[in-house]
């Protein structure tokens, strides 16, 4: 290698080194000393293995149900493709994997499991909830204690850990069965979509199946409209929407963190 200005030399070396760590076939970057055994390939291979295996292991821990559904070997192979296409952009590994669900959408070899991307979304939401900001959930008693005429203009602030994943597949059931395995289940016969609610009111991440239309209520509340208007929007969007069941589910799950009375009472 010809001598280079030193600063440039290091930047160049690191660029080559980084590319060679991530790309498929083993290419040994220029600049590695050649005068020692074992071979440079084996030496460089340790770094390649460290990077890829540690990231694949992090993904497997983050998406345990996806890993279980496709089997360990398949998951590792799939994770390696993901790592190559979407390497981490942050040194905080807890932030790695946000793009995994979308990657799965287009991952041809897993196309036989069409619910896999939504399971990944659910697992990512659980992971995000685990690390999200803390907040104390509001008890429904506080809502019930308000004067009835003010209820329509009450604004419900959602908990920072809360997330909703609506799916055409029974994702809550698939996740539960593949996580707990408490009892033997009858084979899947009736595939209906489920909407998952992920919360972390305290330390524990919780998963609920949302009743019909409740996700519409939450979407409306999240946009900042008051309870009365949000309930109307949900009723319009879903004829099976039941406000009492929706509120009971959301408050019991700890999905509501603030409650502010409107001005128009």
């Amino acid at each position: 290698m010809p001598a280079q200005p030193e600063g440039t030399g290091l930047a160049d070396l690191q660029r080559r080194f980084g590319l060679a760590l991530l790309q498929g076939p083993l290419v040994i970057p220029h600049g590695i000393r050649r005068d020692t055994q074992p071979t440079r390939g084996r030496r460089f291979g340790v770094y390649r293995n460290n990077v890829k295996a540690s990231l694949a292991a992090a993904l497997a821990a983050r998406f345990p149900v996806v890993a279980r559904l496709v089997d360990e070997d398949f998951f590792t192979a799939m994770a390696l493709v993901f790592i190559e296409r979407h390497p981490p952009r942050s040194p905080v590994l807890a932030e790695y994997g946000a793009a995994f669900a979308e990657f799965l959408e287009g991952f041809e070899p897993a196309a036989d499991l069409p619910y896999l991307p939504d399971i990944a979304r659910l697992e990512w939401a659980r992971h995000v909830a685990f690390h999200s900001a803390d907040a104390s959930p509001v008890d429904i008693g506080r809502l019930a204690a308000l004067p009835p005429e003010g209820l329509g203009s009450v604004k419900l602030g959602l908990h920072p850990a809360m997330a909703i994943i609506a799916s055409s597949w029974p994702i809550v059931s698939i996740w539960s069965t593949n996580t707990y395995d408490l009892t033997s289940q009858a084979p899947a016969a009736d595939w209906t979509g489920e909407t998952a609610l992920v919360t972390r009111p305290h330390l524990e991440v919780l998963l609920h199946r949302l009743p019909p239309g409740t996700d519409r209520l939450v979407t409306a509340l999240a946009s900042g409209v008051a309870l009365g208007q949000a309930a109307e929007a949900a009723s319009r969007a879903c004829q099976d929407f039941d406000l009492a069941i929706a509120l009971s589910t959301l408050f019991a799950a700890g999905a509501v963190a603030t409650l502010s009375e409107g001005s128009s009472r």
């Binding site: 030193e6 600063g7 290091l10 990077v51 390497p87 981490p88 040194p91």
Partner: peptide
């Protein structure tokens, strides 16, 4: 060690060449 280049985090403690230039950096 180093682990980030071009905004990509290579999750390992990667080696540095021990030169005067690396030392100043």
């Amino acid at each position: 060690a180093w682990s980030t280049h071009d905004g990509i985090f290579l999750n390992d403690l990667l080696p540095l060449p021990y030169t005067e230039a690396t030392l100043s950096l």
